[in-house]
Write a protein that binds this DNA or RNA. Structure first.
Length: 521
RNA sequence: GCUCCGGUAGUAUAGUCCGGUCAAGUAUUCCGGCCUUUCGAGCCGAAGACCCGGGUCCGAAUCCCGGCCGGAGCACCA
């Protein structure tokens, strides 16, 4: 026992938050969890709880994690081929190891078998009532005309269903519950219906089947057959557990442990499939990875790491109340990860030309990629003043010129100090186009120590002529244009860096132009 | 409307089952300071919460009742 179930709640130091122990562990030989998405959309942060918690528990207990595609609605929540692979890719990115994978559209005969069994047992029946009629009757806690027919008659109806004698909407299989159950939604729930797959072909199996299980039948049977010990899913499924328990009882099965957590939202992001899909269709979003979306694809593109998401989810835990996460919280986790793995580079936004005169010699600036760890290397720039004027021009951020005034000493980081000799009226700078600003300075001194005491502003600089055009895409999809230093051309797409005094970004494209996505400060 | 579930600082969470050690812990945010050739990291400090009202009890964040607020379900969706 002790070995099988490592401690989940060690007292120790309160360093890493741990998940609470799963209930009734000793009832099971091996813990089995599952994540069961409908491949009708991409995955987003709203699914993170189900994924991370289910997977994490499987790993903690040396159990098994199953991915199950629930693609049994070819009509309303129609799956699409692209999303199966998409979901697998997202899970991989999230660091999830799938031990087994199932696709429900491959398993229809299994569901049919169980339906037949339930019908024979008298635990399910084929109902020919119109939907509306059925509800009118059950609201009154009464049996519909079909319910009390003999199992034999229902078996006959069932075979008619299999034969295709009914058309869409003409019959439905219901699982018997209790007609006086306080919640009308539980009373004789529908388990399987007919879909005209000539009109609505399934993306994987086309028109091969017309009888399709509903959620409670398919998920309920699969959870049992796959040996799921702990179901971790959203609280919208709470009533489904109650419904399914009737079927389990009829079949003599024991229902797994079920944990229902609350909805997860994040401020200002759309975490609803329908809104995402609508936005894509209408062209509001450039794609599933549009930075405004809460999809994993978008988060990935923005440089949010899966480790940060995992930490966040473990932090949130399994409570039944809804949570509205703040981006700041996610960023804090992510920053800790990125800070260590990201090299530092220079970026100037709204570049302003700054000419430095009276440069006494050629300077070679070796700038560490990561100041605290020189062993990570350097990038190097040589500043050679022109012979006519001993001058050289640089690009600096307009933002930084806002603080400049005549006579002020400013340090070019890791290069030299300058004194401002010419600049537009301070009050007007803000309104002037960066290109129209005229800023000049003269060389002041080289050593950092010279300006340390006066706390001179330390700014980023890029030698004119070496700049790389750079576009930074923000979370709101707006972009910032500027220049990055030339060494940034060596960066690989998908790496994350920090543009000093600007923020962390993920490199998206390195061509003529550098395209980066802003991650966070 | 009916059936469930939940309400601890800005955000999230611990504690609630088995009332006292909780004048409420932690993370993050915010604020102040230190450090730093980044407005990042790190360090120190400060601020900030038990939905409301009754009841039980020597004692309630924890138990009971009522209210308020929030969420979910009430599909031939998942």
């Amino acid at each position: 026992m002790e070995q099988n179930w490592p401690e989940t709640q060690k007292k120790e130091k309160p360093e890493e938050k741990k998940l609470p122990a799963l209930p009734n562990l000793d009832k099971f030989k091996q813990i089995v969890t599952r994540f069961s998405p409908n491949p009708d959309c991409v995955l987003h942060l709203g699914s993170a709880r189900a994924i991370m918690l289910s997977h994490e528990y499987a790993r903690i207990y040396n159990g098994k994690f199953i991915l199950r595609f629930e693609d049994t609605d070819p009509k309303i929540k129609k799956p699409a081929l692209e999303f199966y692979e998409n979901i697998r890719r997202d899970l991989k990115w999230l660091g999830v190891q799938v031990d087994e994978e199932y696709i429900q559209s491959d398993r229809l005969p299994i569901y049919y078998e169980h339906v037949e069994k339930l019908v024979v047992l008298g635990a399910a029946y084929v109902c020919e009532c119109a939907q509306e009629t059925f509800h009118k009757i059950t609201v009154l806690r009464q049996a519909c005309p079909c319910r009390d027919l003999s199992p034999l008659e229902h078996l006959e109806r069932w075979h008619k269903m299999l034969n295709g004698d009914y058309k869409e909407g003409q019959a439905v299989v219901r699982v018997k519950t209790e007609l006086d159950h306080p919640n009308p939604a539980v009373r004789d729930w529908p388990a399987l219906r007919i879909i005209d797959t000539k009109k609505h072909p399934h993306p994987r199996v086309g028109s091969k089947y017309t009888l399709w299980p509903l959620y409670n039948l398919a998920a309920g049977i699969d959870d049992y057959l796959m040996g799921i010990t702990h179901i971790i899913r959203g609280k919208e499924h709470y009533t489904n557990m109650i419904r399914q328990k009737y079927m389990y009882k009829a079949l003599g099965w024991e229902y797994p442990e079920a944990i229902h957590y609350g909805r997860l939202k994040i401020t200002d992001a759309f975490l609803s499939k329908s809104k995402i899909m609508a936005g894509i269709r209408e062209g509001t979003y450039v794609g599933f990875d549009d930075p405004r979306l809460g999809t994993f694809a978008a988060l990935r593109k923005r440089g949010i790491t899966s480790e940060a998401i995992k930490k966040m989810i473990i932090d949130v835990g399994v409570k039944a109340n809804d949570v509205t996460l703040s981006w700041e919280n996610l960023y804090a986790h992510n920053r800790k990860i990125l800070d260590n793995s990201s090299d530092r580079y220079f970026f100037v936004s709204d570049p302003v030309e700054l000419k430095v005169n009276a440069i006494p010699k050629t300077f070679i600036s070796k700038i560490p990629l990561y100041p605290e760890k020189p062993e990570r290397g350097f990038r190097e720039y040589t500043i050679t003043p022109n012979v006519e004027e001993n001058a050289s021009s640089f690009w600096v951020s307009k933002k930084d010129t806002l603080n400049m005034e005549l006579g002020k000493i400013v340090r070019f980081m890791e290069l030299f100090n300058i004194e401002i000799t010419k600049i537009n009226q301070q009050a007007t700078i803000d309104a002037i186009e960066p290109k129209m600003l005229i800023v000049e300075a003269k060389y002041y001194s080289e050593s950092y120590d010279d300006v340390r005491r006066i706390k001179a502003q330390i700014i980023q600089w890029i030698p004119k002529g070496t700049e790389v055009n750079c576009e930074i895409v923000l979370q709101n999809a707006q972009t910032i244009e500027g220049f990055a230093e030339s060494e940034s051309k060596k960066l690989k797409p998908d790496s994350t860096i920090q543009f000093e005094r600007f923020g962390f970004t993920r490199i998206d494209k390195v061509n003529q132009k550098l395209v980066a996505y802003y991650t966070h400060k």
